[in-house]
Design a protein around this nucleic acid. Sequence first.
DNA 1: CTCCATTTTGAAGTAAACTCTAAGTGCGAT
DNA 2: ATCGCACTTAGAGTTTACTTCAAAATGGAG
Lengths: 126, 126
Amino acid sequence: MKIAEVSKKFDISSDTLRYYERIGLLPHVSRNKSGIRDYTEEDCKWIEFVKCMRSAGLPIEVLIEYVGLFQQGDETIEARKELLIEQRNELKRKMEETKKILQRLDYKIDSYEHALLEKEKRLKRF
Amino acid sequence: MKIAEVSKKFDISSDTLRYYERIGLLPHVSRNKSGIRDYTEEDCKWIEFVKCMRSAGLPIEVLIEYVGLFQQGDETIEARKELLIEQRNELKRKMEETKKILQRLDYKIDSYEHALLEKEKRLKRF
DNA sequence: CTCCATTTTGAAGTAAACTCTAAGTGCGAT
DNA sequence: ATCGCACTTAGAGTTTACTTCAAAATGGAG
């Protein structure tokens, strides 16, 4: 698969794909004899994984570390697991916070609802 | 309250407080006769609100709009409510996505757990 | 073979959200 | 009254995460 195809498939610009590879957020993609990237299924899985984790807000730095550990082989399974657990905990924490903020928004919206009703009442009075 | 106090209270740097005010993310804070900011309780409530909403990822731009609407008075109650509803929906959407990603992380962590057990088994065999 | 779109690289540019600097003012403590 | 720290402003600088650019090479259609 060439870069344009992959770009379309994941809705990530070619530039970003090259950038991700350059900074080590994706493992090196192999090239054909003339130096053009030829993405494998494996590469695509990484891209999908990275896109997903980025969308959840995992920092690029952490994902680079994960890719790095992965490339070092089986010796890093424990470390990778720990990294994922840490990120999961962080995500859970964020979700709890978001829940609270949602409640707060609900409350505020409700207040506005009441304010609007009051306003209407006052208008009808005349 | 002077800026240093407020900064400490909310753990937001003085620079950031001034910056927020400058871009309209906070209503104008009144100054004493010698030009030094004197934050009221009202100001503090705004800061707390902004900090909270920013932490949930609401864009600065949207919050600036909200502050702007607020300053225009009661005519904008409806618009403010709509703005909050939109942000709430967006937040809900994000939370659903985060939930899915949490599941995925759980699954991945579990896989690593199994991989580690397998590794241990292999070691014990010899 | 000729075009023209696509790809390559390294490097420079951009947007958002701060963060810092410079140059100056104000005020409590010694 | 003067030291020194907190405050002021305007504006420059930084960081993160891309994005664009420039110049050269490749690849497929006609």
